[in-house]
């Protein structure tokens, strides 16, 4: 059963990625102008050469077929801007940066968020609960491009504790501020999700049964409540990745990190079609596969799920 489910989901994933790429490609092509002529008008002869070089003189469906064939063979071609590098090279170079920051941020958010949310739920309506939830609301409301610079202002420019904007690889002190900036909103979300989930579970009949067994409150929470209470957080993990990708774009911009997001924005500004398509295709696959993994994980955590 499970394998059939996975197979079916994977089969849906492929056309979806193709749809996303086609949509992106169409948007790029529908826009007037071209990457080579953004500023000045070129002499017709030169323009004709360029168009021939990139195949732009052929009918659109031929071009589309070409693009699709490249993408399906996982060869996205050369970047137009960084001419010496293939898109795959750039992905290989930038992904570790984004992945390091994103993973650390999410793990931190998971740790702090679940603890905060659980404690808030256990002490419902106490000062601690209100405090934790107020801070979470703040985390949701303060945009990361406001939080980031404020952290820089305090920890780098005033206290000189941490470097403001550079990349020293993983792990390094230069990661601290980007990770904090990125994880704030997930911490807040996860704390709120955990609290809501735990509150519902703590009120359920099976928790009353657990208490009636004579278990300590600690055993009740850790053995019985946590699993059900954290299910919403598990569900959140899938969409969180998509959000994390957009989040890293901002954070990389604030801290000038050489990551995927920075290159994606630059590619858009430079009309670097192969690079854009490459990054979109890569992240789409990543997000879809990740969502599938989360669904499978959900099935392991909740035995009632049948595929």
């Amino acid at each position: 059963m499970k394998f059939r489910f996975i197979l079916r989901r994977l089969l849906v994933t492929v056309p979806m990625v193709l749809v996303v790429i086609t949509l992106t490609w169409a948007l790029i092509r529908l826009a007037p102008g071209n990457f080579y002529a953004s500023e000045r008008k070129l002499p017709p002869a030169i323009e004709k050469n360029i168009r021939a070089k990139y195949g732009l003189d052929r009918p659109w469906y031929v071009q589309y077929g070409h693009v699709m064939r490249n993408i399906l063979s996982l060869d996205f071609g050369n970047s137009l801007k960084y001419e010496n590098e293939t898109v795959n090279d750039i992905l290989r170079r930038t992904l570790p940066v984004s992945a390091a920051v994103g993973t650390c941020a999410y793990l931190l958010a998971l740790l702090v968020g679940t603890v905060l949310g659980t404690v808030a739920a256990l002490k419902q309506n106490s000062k601690l609960d209100y405090g934790a939830m107020g801070v979470s609301m703040l985390g949701i409301s303060v945009p990361n491009f406001v939080l980031g610079p404020i952290l820089v202002l305090v920890f780098s420019l005033s206290l000189y504790w941490l470097p403001p904007a550079r990349w020293d690889g993983f792990p390094s002190w230069s990661m601290v501020l980007p990770v904090l900036t990125l994880s704030a909103i997930y911490m807040a979300y996860i704390a709120r999700l955990t609290r809501a989930g735990m509150l519902e579970v703590l009120r359920s009949d099976y928790i009353r049964t657990a208490r009636a067994k004579g278990l300590t409150e600690r055993q009740v929470v850790l053995r019985h409540a946590l699993r059900g209470g954290l299910l919403p957080v598990v569900s959140f993990t899938g969409p969180a990745l998509a959000l994390l990708i957009t989040g890293t774009v901002v954070v990389e911009r604030i801290y000038a990190l050489p990551g995927l997001g920075t290159y994606f924005i630059n590619a858009n500004l430079n009309r670097d079609e192969p690079l854009i398509l490459g990054i979109v295709a890569f992240t789409s696959v990543l997000v879809l596969v990740f969502n599938l993994l989360v669904d499978i994980a959900y099935g392991f955590i909740d035995p009632r799920i049948r595929y």
Partner: peptide, 25 residues
């Protein structure tokens, strides 16, 4: 999304996860 106690089982085959809350915040 916090309806954790009873995730609906959909006949379509996907565990119907709670709606993607974060997107909307």
């Amino acid at each position: 999304p916090w309806g954790a106690g009873s995730p609906a089982l959909t006949p379509r085959g996907t565990p119907q996860r709670p709606p993607v809350a974060a997107r909307s915040g």
